[in-house]
Design a protein around this nucleic acid. Structure first.
Length: 530
RNA sequence: GAGGGCGUAGCUCAGUUGGCAGAGCAGCGGACUUUUAAUCCGCGGGUCCAGGGUUCGAGUCCCUGCGCCCUCACCA
């Protein structure tokens, strides 16, 4: 169906034939946004102009504006053409191109304009009879031809797949999409400002790594031809940021992409953005306070933005934002609950009661899952079952995630503290109980948002934990668990005690902009190739 | 990976019991210098996701494939 495109090509040629104008525009100085143009309207000047227009000495002191925008609506009269323009400023603005008052070839060019074209218009600001602020155009020229028919003017672009694949249409056709991504940019920019204000130094560490460490996830693998070595895209920047602590940088952070070759769903995209931060001579608590600060101030920014008020005027009690059916309170202090305490409260028995833990794991199908893993590798399970072959801590954690995490109030930001040390390989064990780790994970909206650690800086303990990890049950997992020798070498040089955290930016933006899918906060989410 | 849903005009969507492929907007031609999703008159526009099957006849029923969405599982 190229009927509509043919009509646009015809209009394109029509415009080209008019005075040699380039339908694809040119450099243009002095443009203001549609919102600013609208704001320039002057009631008195407009009234004076109207009163004197038909007199012998007309007065026209109306403010003028030169704008560029995409044509959303077009209503043609015989000698007067109305268009509604849109830009990123969030305000659409009406323009009127009159055959009598528009100079040069403006009027015929306006006639040859199609919905979706980008146009440039210049003229005084006036109000119509019905009170709509309008630019009464005296100079009109094309900005860019749109050869593709636009989505319906009213419904916008609804098709979810098209919205992701053709974000360039979604952004201008659906103002809410533009708003989300403007907010995302503002949130990230604000987070950088908050970090800088606290004396953190932003750094960049490798995304191409010979060994993908700092988390447990399957990496994307590729090959560096020049050196003939296999490399991976990073799954976390952690081990490099800690090397910088060793080098003497006291407070570092990085906002950038991680890549994980795993499931794709509403909360997971193959590449996602995290802020990771480390502070020498801090600890888990230092970082929990930092995360709470970043979340709260980000919420303040969003509230200020949506109300159109100054950020300083938004108090903590106003920091309640909708997320689906939930109302999330970012203003109150975040809740805290111990891992073991939450386990016992939700399961009815202690995590140390291993008989009951294993029985529950069996009931939940967890045992069967692990038995399947072992069987797939051809390993004997034996008469004694799985116990003894799979670390108790892993089974405890499976039960915890299934039952205890799910019992949290999703509308209340909550830190889970005192994780088992066995599942926290990069975290310092608690001095008073070496089976627990100085680790706290922030949960919110049913999502894991950010882990916090008192970092492990004892190279011997770290080396032992790497070895223990590698003794895992699953051969498949072995392929992405790494023993980073250089990292141990760095720790041997001496890393100051430190706190660290990693906050998922995409998920934070989801929570703050009320978007239920990570794809709606990523400009170009990963899509299967067409 | 399992289950469910969807795929029809450029866009947004109807399509009844299996019986000539529909609407609104958009487009084309005409009228109109204060319109507001402008209005009025007229006209054109389809690989019904793809392939196969059942049937006199399939957008509709069946099978296979592709794509997207949802739920669950996986992803410590």
């Amino acid at each position: 169906m190229h009927e509509q495109e043919a009509a646009r090509l015809a209009n394109l040629n029509k415009a080209r034939a008019i005075g040699g104008v380039n339908p694809y525009g040119t450099r243009t100085e002095g443009l203001v946004t549609l919102a600013e143009a609208k704001g320039r309207y002057d009631e008195e000047a407009d009234a004076e102009h109207q009163a004197t227009a038909k007199s012998e000495s007309p007065v026209d002191d109306r403010p003028r504006a030169k704008v560029a925008g995409r044509v959303m609506l077009k209503r043609t009269g015989g000698k007067l053409i109305w268009m509604n323009l849109r830009d990123a400023s969030g305000e659409d603005l009406q323009i009127a191109v009159s055959k009598r008052d528009c100079t040069g070839d403006g009027f015929p060019l306006a006639q040859a304009t199609d919905l979706g074209d980008i146009v440039v218009a210049h003229g005084p600001l006036m109000k119509t009879r019905t009170g709509e602020v309008t630019i009464w155009v005296d100079a009109f020229e094309p900005g860019a031809k749109s050869l593709t028919p636009p989505p319906t003017k009213h419904a916008g672009l609804q098709d979810v797949e098209l919205r992701y694949r053709q974000r360039y249409v979604d952004l201008w056709a659906n103002p809410e999409t533009m708003r989300v991504f403007q907010l995302r940019s503002a949130i990230v920019s604000n987070i950088r400002r908050l970090m800088d204000a606290r004396g953190y130094q932003e750094v960049e560490t490798p995304m191409l790594q010979a060994q993908a460490g700092g988390a447990a996830a399957r990496p994307f693998k590729t090959h560096l031809n020049a050196l003939d070595v296999d490399v991976s895209l990073r799954i976390a920047p952690e081990l490099y940021l800690k090397r910088l602590l060793v080098g003497g940088m006291p407070k570092v952070y990085e906002v950038n992409r991680n890549f994980r070759n795993e499931g794709v769903d509403k909360q997971h995209n193959p590449e996602f953005t995290m802020i990771e931060a480390y502070e020498a001579f801090g600890d888990m608590g230092t970082m929990m306070e930092l995360t709470e600060h970043l979340c709260r101030e980000s919420a303040r920014l969003v509230v200020a933005w949506s109300r159109g008020v100054d950020i300083l005027s938004v108090s903590d009690v106003d920091l309640v934002l909708p997320f689906g059916e939930l109302m999330i309170d970012f203003g109150s202090p975040f809740a805290r609950v111990g891992y073991g305490e939450l386990f016992e409260r939700s399961l009815g028995f202690a995590m140390s009661d291993l008989d009951k833990v294993w029985a529950k794991a069996d009931e939940l199908g967890i045992v069967g899952k692990y038995a399947g893993h072992l069987a797939a590798e051809g390993r004997e399970i034996g008469a004694g079952g799985l116990r003894g072959k799979v670390d108790d801590a892993i089974i405890v954690n499976e039960v915890f995630e299934e039952v205890a995490e799910a019992s949290l109030d999703p509308s209340r930001p909550t830190y889970i503290t005192d994780y088992p040390s066995a599942i926290s390989p990069l975290t310092r064990p608690k001095p008073e109980d070496l089976t627990l780790a100085d680790r706290a994970d922030l949960f919110l909206g049913g999502m894991e948002l950010a882990p916090h650690y008192t970092e492990l800086n004892d190279p011997e303990v770290q080396a032992e934990k790497f070895r223990a990890q590698l003794a895992g049950v699953d051969a498949e997992e072995m392929t992405f668990r790494t023993f980073d020798k250089d990292f141990i070498r760095a720790l041997k040089v001496g890393m100051p005690p430190a706190g660290g955290m990693g906050l998922g930016i995409d998920r934070l933006v989801m929570l703050l902009t009320n978007q239920r899918s990570i794809r709606d906060v990523l400009l170009f989410p990963f899509m299967r190739p067409e």
